[in-house]
């Protein structure tokens, strides 16, 4: 892999993203609206739930609003990054293939897109993390932030994976909505999964580890090494699968 090509690709992708002003504004408006809605509709009534990644006996009792704020922050980051990743992977497919024909390597193109995605994930994650203390103070703020970034990493990789499978936008969007709504938008909320009859599916969904990383950090002092490593592994596997599929789609016949 030639780093100069990755750098050029990253720079150009960032320029394109920066010029899409409305999308850029929405990246910051959507989490703010999500937070505002939670702030307006929930109360500080205490709720108790079991955190899936800590010991079976451990129940935490926290404010309903605080729990909902962490959950909605994760959902905002995951959904936004998956759509952005889908867009980056699907857009300009023919021009990207022409670039490969001209000498770019598939790995260089995908790496540059991923770097651009990481840059945006970091910005969104930090923004969401920065506004979180306005509403409540988590126990370990830095790890909550790390959970947001890992949600972006896992769902960004998932968006790239979906973008590498589907050529058309609508199918990709529907596929992302299918999983994101079920997973990061519903089942990973401890209020839902704590009473679930069967937790096997929930524990194997992409947002499980990042959600646990943020929730455990926000409300306990338990170790978050396992959810962090789990997030890293899940995202990396999805990313590797995306690379294989993207390379197949972009391959040239010599």
């Amino acid at each position: 892999m030639r780093l100069k090509n990755v750098e050029t690709g990253w720079l150009m992708t960032m320029k394109e993203t920066r010029r899409n002003r409305m999308a850029l504004i929405l990246f910051f408006v959507i989490p703010t609206v999500f937070y505002a809605v939670i702030f307006l509709i929930t109360t500080h009534r205490p709720i108790s739930f079991h955190l899936a990644s800590v010991s079976q006996e451990a129940f935490v009792t926290v404010s309903q609003m605080n729990e909902a704020l962490v959950f909605i922050g994760l959902a905002a980051v995951g959904i936004l990054t998956s759509f952005l990743a889908l867009h980056l992977t699907q857009k300009h497919a023919e021009v990207n293939r022409r670039l490969i024909l001209c000498g770019y390597r598939t790995t260089e193109l995908l790496a540059s897109k991923f770097l651009a995605l990481v840059t945006v994930i970091a910005l969104i994650g930090c923004y969401v993390g920065a506004i979180t203390p306005l509403f409540f103070r988590p126990q370990r703020f830095v790890f909550v932030l790390l959970g947001f970034v890992m949600a972006g990493y896992v769902y960004g990789a998932y968006g790239m994976f979906v973008g590498a499978i589907f050529r058309r936008e609508l199918e990709g969007i529907l596929f992302i909505v299918l999983l994101a709504n079920l997973d990061i938008g519903w089942l990973q909320n401890p209020i839902y999964y704590a009473d679930a009859q069967n937790k096997f599916i929930i524990r194997h969904l992409p947002a499980y580890f990042p959600s646990q990383l943020s929730m455990v950090s926000a409300f306990t002092d338990q170790s978050v090494l396992r959810p962090f490593l789990g997030s890293l592994a899940y995202g990396t596997i999805l990313l590797a699968a995306a690379l294989v599929l993207y390379s197949r789609r972009m391959r040239l016949w010599k």
Partner: peptide
């Protein structure tokens, strides 16, 4: 690339 300038397109392809 429609959302890049003419010069940026040349730069991208020069890199390729």
């Amino acid at each position: 690339f429609e959302t890049l300038t003419v010069r940026e397109n040349f730069s991208f392809f020069a890199s390729a």
